[in-house]
Design a protein around this nucleic acid. Sequence first.
DNA 1: GCGACAG
DNA 2: ATCTTGTCGC
Length: 224
Amino acid sequence: MSQKFLEIQNELLPKVKLENIFKKDEIKLIAGVDLAYWDVNNTTHGTCCIVVIDYHTKEVIEKVYSYGEITIPYIPGFLAFRELPLIIDTVKKLINLPDLYMFDGNGYLHYRHMGIATHASFFLNKPTIGVAKSYLKIQGTDFMMPKNQAGAYTDININSEVYGRTLRTTKNVKPIFVSCGNWIDLHTSTEIVMNCINKESRLPIPVRLADLETHKVRKQLSHL
DNA sequence: GCGACAG
DNA sequence: ATCTTGTCGC
């Protein structure tokens, strides 16, 4: 199974572009994407929630979700294959199409530069950013802890290539791991993430809201 | 058997 | 990811 997955990701890799294909003032709507899981008998079910906000006012513009059985197991390095089917299904329900998507997980910061944010971009056809809460160690490379100051960061350099960035979004709180998804550069990715931080969470608003939403939906669905 | 391991 | 209460601190 994972052999076929490897082939698919290796074919996509050459199409990744870590450059902005947009102008900053064109970014109006940003979506956060997340999933939550629960078990029914011996099968795993999941819900995908997408929350769209106005990048400038942070107002919630739209929320959509879908749910279904999850058939692909979680395998480190192949998260996209597990979560993409439900994500694609959910995106179809959006009325307000986002200018950019933020994911709970990595993008270019991945064994084959094909974390879920990067992989998903080819189905969404929009710029994407990866935001992970924990570190995925690649080739034994640890990350350097940034200074304890909001906005401080350290680049994750592996074999003379920058895979992503350890970003302290909030003082006195663990850093997050930001990486390019596709069609955007790391500098702009960092800037957009920081512009989506408030006192409520170390996570950018779109991802945080999508996370909260998946918990609500799960509580509702798993109690039926 | 042991340790690694985004979500 | 998920299983789970209280509790320390700003």
